[in-house]
């Protein structure tokens, strides 16, 4: 009984915290972008313009809930929910601190990989249901990008699994007691980060949206809170990837003096800000360049990394 209550409470707290952070990320992103572009960004509503998020939310809620007459209604409504749900499910296995996690699965890493790739359904279904050529093009790009980058995302993590000997994320964190995996697996870190950006469709890899080519890609026809779900899904994705990077390569909650959850949060925010910095500085590659890069460069490197790591591990044993 007590156990169930504890987990329910934990789930509620984590859910609430995550969604709140995801919402404030809108503000953070706008302020950070402004900072790097010599502007101020939203600074009028509330202290430091923090309430812009509230204003935005109210705006989104009050928008006409428009479903185009030519759209597949049921799928059109259902699609945005998938992205948020899939990302939130991934958080089940994220160890925020030794005692703050929902489920310490022994296949945690696999679960993360499985859940995060589910998110693409939302893009494919949303784009298809919109019944609009730009949306469909966006959806197709999203699917192919996901397939290509999912492959070496998994491959890049195998090195870490080999070194730690477990798929359980707490084990992986604990395995970094001496030194972080970023030191032993630098190549895997770079590959995972790249794949993570692609996974969340963030700039410079926002090929499915590509507003200069596809209007707004898969969500061209979305407005109001349904669009808001895609939005939230994207920011939750940023948090997830940042959290995973921290967990897998930067020692998770490990750190001196401060409580573990604070360490985890700090590290995660560094990567969130790095995501924003990428958006501020890098142009979007062409679709074919993206695919070529994935299959012809990153995949071989990932395989090579796996081979070398395997070799070292063998030798060491």
């Amino acid at each position: 009984m007590n156990e169930i209550l504890k987990y329910t409470l934990m789930i509620v707290i984590i859910l609430f915290t995550l969604t709140t952070i995801a919402a404030w990320l809108i503000w953070l992103e706008r302020r950070m972008l402004a900072l790097w572009q010599d502007r101020y960004g939203p600074n009028r509503a509330g202290p430091f313009g923090l309430f812009i998020v509230v204003a935005d939310t109210i705006k989104l809620f009050f928008k006409e809930d428009w479903i185009p007459p030519f759209a597949e209604k049921a799928v059109f409504v259902f699609a945005p929910a998938i992205v948020a749900a899939a990302v939130l499910l991934s958080f089940v296995v994220v160890p925020f601190a030794p005692d703050i996690l929902v489920a310490d699965l022994d296949i945690g890493l696999l679960f993360f990989l499985a859940m995060s790739s589910l998110g693409v359904y939302s893009i494919v279904l949303g784009g298809w249901a919109s019944n609009n050529k730009y949306s469909l093009l966006g959806a197709l790009r999203g699917a192919s990008q996901m397939i290509s980058y999912e492959v070496f995302m998994g491959l890049s993590l195998m090195g870490v699994v080999m070194l730690s000997g477990s798929f359980r994320l707490t084990d992986i964190v604990m395995a970094q007691k001496d030194f972080w995996f970023v030191v032993t697996q630098p190549v895997a870190f770079v590959l995972f980060l790249t794949a993570g950006i692609a996974e969340t469709h963030r700039l410079p890899f926002d090929i499915p949206e590509a507003e200069s080519e596809l209007v707004a890609g898969f969500h061209s026809e979305y407005s109001g809170m349904k669009f808001g779900m895609f939005f939230i899904g994207e920011y939750l994705g940023i948090i997830l990837i940042s959290a995973m990077v921290v967990t897998i390569f930067f020692g998770g909650w490990l750190g001196p003096v401060l409580p573990p959850v604070v360490w985890f949060t700090l590290k995660t925010f560094v990567f969130i800000i790095f995501f924003i910095l990428l958006r501020a500085s890098l142009p979007r590659p062409r679709y074919d360049q993206l695919m070529e890069y994935g299959w012809k460069i990153i995949l071989p490197i990932a395989l090579l990394n796996l081979l070398v790591t395997g070799g070292f591990t063998l030798l060491k044993n």
Binding site: Y40, L277, L282
Partner: peptide
């Protein structure tokens, strides 16, 4: 060049802001 532009953009953090507070 990618890294360089990321770095340059990051350094803009310490520049003066152009916005006029109308």
């Amino acid at each position: 060049s990618l890294l360089r532009s990321i770095g340059l953009i990051f350094l803009h953090m310490f520049r003066k802001r152009e916005t006029i507070q109308y």
